[in-house]
């Protein structure tokens, strides 16, 4: 088995994909740099969240507001969606250009992402009912900004999956579409990484 060295982070298409493989190198590297920049953005919000952890200003705190069952479900959904995106990427790499399976896995991933968002918004809603709105306290502001930014990223990811589905349909699996699917994969896995930080630092540490 020859193991061709990877050209960029994430799943590599591999030499059999020819131009699509080599052309991905700088593009995916660039996207990776972008993700690192995004990581710093999240890092600052994390640090702000920790620094404002005691700024509840007499309002409701984590114990009153967090619903860990829902968080556990969200975590499961997102983890599963990371996996299903992995299956999609494998079909992209090994599926000999057939589109149907790939599109099905993408749709499943999107459905899981949508379900995640649904739970998150329901949580926001019920928190708000209990007085947990961002204008209530500095801590809640930090909470909504951090978790909301992640949710916003998921939303954009869903939009991106939608656009990619159309592109696969219209343009077929050409060089560019393949590269973009690889980028989307990095993005989606990256969001799961951020979520690990969120459920550990915000939710679990919050009620521990």
């Amino acid at each position: 088995m020859t193991q061709d060295t990877p050209l960029h982070p994430g799943l590599n298409l591999g030499a059999p994909h020819g131009e699509a493989h080599t052309r991905s190198e700088p593009v995916i590297f660039g996207f990776w740099v972008f993700l690192m920049s995004d990581l710093i953005l999240f890092g600052i919000l994390f640090a702000t969240y920790v620094a404002m952890r005691n700024g509840t200003a007499g309002g409701p705190g984590p114990l009153e507001l967090f619903d860990l069952t829902s968080v556990a479900i969200q975590t499961g959904l997102l983890l599963l969606s990371s996996l299903t995106y992995g299956f999609a990427s494998l079909l992209l790499k090994h599926g000999n250009g057939q589109r149907r399976g790939l599109m099905i896995w993408l749709i499943i991933t999107a459905a899981l992402g949508l379900a995640f968002l649904g739970f998150e918004l329901t949580d926001f809603h019920s928190m708000a009912q209990d007085g947990g709105v961002p204008s209530r306290s500095g801590w809640l502001s930090a909470y909504y900004a951090l978790v909301g930014l992640h949710g916003l990223h998921i939303t954009l990811g869903l939009l991106w999956i939608g656009v990619m589905l159309v592109q696969i349909g219209v343009l077929g699996l050409n060089c560019r579409v393949k590269t973009r699917l690889l980028m989307l994969g990095l993005y989606w896995h990256f969001l799961d990484l951020v979520w690990i930080g969120i459920f550990s630092i915000v939710f679990l540490a919050g009620v521990a």
Binding site: P6, P9, D192, L193
Partner: peptide, 14 residues
């Protein structure tokens, strides 16, 4: 996840 989903490890990576 970095290892298994993002395929980054210490040995072969550029």
């Amino acid at each position: 996840q970095v290892r298994y989903f993002l395929h980054i490890d210490l040995s072969r990576q550029k």
